[in-house]
Nucleic acid binder design. Structure first.
Length: 549
RNA sequence: GCCCCUGUAGCUCAGUAGGAUAGAGCGUGAGAUUCCUAAUCUCAAGGUCGCAGGUUCGAGUCCUGCCAGGGGCGCCA
């Protein structure tokens, strides 16, 4: 918000001085060193490349026009031609009033206004319970959806269910075999079938629901087993996600794509463009024309459609029929090879591939007692999300899942997450919130009410630490913008840790509730601002802010 | 062999689409509470940004090559 304000002013000056310069990519940023002001711009340096005039001379001219502005307390030209800004502290104080007035609406942005975005995440195949890798995707997708909404997008959360294809057949067969086994019939259980204990549970249920299961025609029995398995597992997944406080606007069944005839429609469209051909009895899509490394099969020689064919039509519907302006897909990093072919299909259907943003999330390693726990999907060696949540709780789990960029693999240390101590960063932030709540209770006892703040002519906040906090609070909207544009929830985490640190430091150094009522009220106002921002920041991550700890 | 991600302090990671003097937390060492929550705070030590070139006013950040770790290269999903 503040960055935007400065940028706007700079653009205005630029237009006045150099109307011929249309497109220019310059930055307003917080310099690393405080000696270079609160904010700083490289405008003159970038302009130097275009105008072929020394940056310092350009900066001087810019300053002359920019100078008389109450937003800035001081301006200077420094280094090779940076312009440094010192913001008038009144602006910070005004913002604090604004935060207290707006409460959780502070930081609401309009950068996504009028744009519909679909965030599709987890979307695990209904072949088994969710494991911790899915947990990372769940936390990430949910937080991203909250952040994008805050940034002004119209957001929908969707779970895409792969409820057809080979894996489903294997799932059905796994249950059926286990049912036979339970009935005392000797079976050979293939290695590539689902090995997990939960298959037995479903088999038991199948035998209960269909006592004649084993007498039925095999085809029929397999179907019953399969359908029951999908339904049971999906319910389980849904419950795990709800316990993790993740709710979807829509659960989209892959089968519906076929019911609606979308797959045939899409392949027909591509066919008309001459992008489908037959080879070895299968139908292929010429994805190489759009940068993929090889052509891909959409229909197998057996006559079955591939997963890819479904996905083409799913995204076709997403962007063309359902009218989403942006699709954000969260996939495991092992799917990276899949991105070029999907983008190729969008391009072939005249959809701007930029509309689809795929975030590839790296692995989660579970560390227990300093050792890496190995995980293999098929063999039920993974750790289930529900177990983890039971052990460490939703707040710590979400916080840790969100604390890394998607690009980094995440080492999840269970002992650390369980620790209710200083080593666990989630409590550090929550504790700041709880401390402030407690301050207000104390203030109430002493009959200091924040309402009296209105009578105060101005805020008595002049200490270095107080100004630091004010500055940090003002950054909140900028951080939201950044994390929305970069689809990076972890930015919010780092911001909150910084803010909490500033607060704790302040709290330790100064008494908030003092004799002087004006000072007390001013300090309480500052605390209130912190509390509002911390609570809303944590809320963006799906983490609760306790009143006491 | 090809593709993707990663390589920054002892450990785990930030570094804001190229900016000015490289940042946190943990761990280590030393300290702080008659007073609003010590799940807190203060101070200190700790760096050839994997290696080598290149691009330019300027590189941890961009390009090329190499090295190391992880993941992926099906008419599986």
């Amino acid at each position: 918000m503040i960055k935007r304000k400065i940028k706007e002013r700079l653009r205005k000056v630029l237009k006045e001085l150099y109307p011929e310069v249309k497109e220019i990519a310059f930055e307003v940023e917080k310099p690393k060193s405080k000696n270079f002001g609160d904010y700083s711009t490289n405008l003159a340096l970038v302009l130097q490349g275009i105008k072929k005039v020394p940056a310092k001379d350009l900066a001087k001219k810019l300053l002359e026009v920019l100078s008389p502005d109450p937003l800035f307390e001081k301006l200077e030209i420094a280094g090779p031609g940076f312009i440094n800004f010192w913001i008038n502290s009144q602006f910070y104080k005004d913002t604090l009033w604004y935060i207290i007035k707006e409460r959780e609406a502070f930081g609401n942005l309009e950068i996504g206004k009028g744009r519909k975005v679909l965030v599709e995440f987890v979307s695990a195949n209904p072949t088994g319970p969710l494991h911790i890798g899915h947990g990372r995707g769940a936390a990430y997708g949910d937080a991203l959806a909250r952040i994008l909404k805050k940034a002004g997008f119209e957001v929908f959360k969707e779970y895409y269910i792969n409820d057809r294809g080979t894996q489903m057949e294997i799932l059905g067969a796994s249950v059926f075999l286990r049912a036979k086994e339970l009935a005392g019939i000797p079976v050979e259980f293939p290695e590539d079938f689902y090995q997990g204990e939960y298959i037995y549970e479903i088999a038991k249920e199948a035998l209960r629901s269909y006592p004649d299961l084993l007498e039925r025609k095999e085809e029929e029995a397999l179907e019953l087993s399969r359908e029951l398995a999908i339904k049971t597992i999906l319910e389980d997944i849904r419950k795990d996600l709800e316990d993790f406080r993740v709710y979807y606007d829509n659960w989209y069944s892959e089968r519906d794509l076929y019911k609606k005839g979308l797959v045939e429609e899409c392949i027909h469209l591509l066919s008309e463009k001459g992008l489908i051909y037959e080879k070895d009895g299968a139908k292929w899509f010429k994805s190489t024309l759009f940068g993929d490394e090889k052509d891909r099969v959409v229909r197998k020689a057996t006559g079955e459609w591939t997963y890819f064919a479904s996905d083409i039509s799913y995204h076709y519907e997403k962007f063309i029929k359902r009218g989403f302006d942006l699709g954000v897909n969260l996939w495991g990093a092992d799917h990276h090879g899949y991105v070029p072919r999907l983008k190729a299909s969008l391009q072939a259907l005249n959809i701007d591939p930029e509309k689809l943003q795929v975030i590839l999330i790296q692995m989660v390693n579970l560390i227990e007692e300093g050792k890496l726990k190995s995980m293999s999907t098929r063999k039920a060696e993974y750790v289930e999300l529900k177990e983890l949540v039971k052990e460490v709780g939703v707040e710590a789990a979400r916080f840790i899942f969100l604390s890394r960029s998607a690009d980094s693999p995440l080492d999840f240390e269970v002992e650390l997450a369980k620790k209710q101590s200083q080593e666990n960063p989630v409590y550090y932030v929550q504790y700041a919130h709880a401390r402030i709540s407690s301050l207000f209770e104390k203030a109430k006892e002493k009959r200091v009410e924040l309402d009296k703040l209105k009578e105060l002519p101005s805020l008595a906040l002049e200490e270095r630490e107080e100004i630091e906090i004010l500055k940090k609070l003002v950054e909140f909207p900028d951080e939201i913008e950044l994390s929305a544009l970069q689809l990076a929830p972890y930015k919010i985490i780092y911001y909150l840790l910084d803010l909490a640190a500033l607060f704790h430091e302040y709290y330790n150094k100064f008494r908030i509730i003092v004799e002087d009522e004006g000072l007390t009220l001013s300090r309480l106002a500052l605390c209130k601002g912190c509390q509002i921002v911390i609570k809303e920041g944590l809320n963006l991550l799906g983490i609760r802010s306790p009143e006491r700890m």
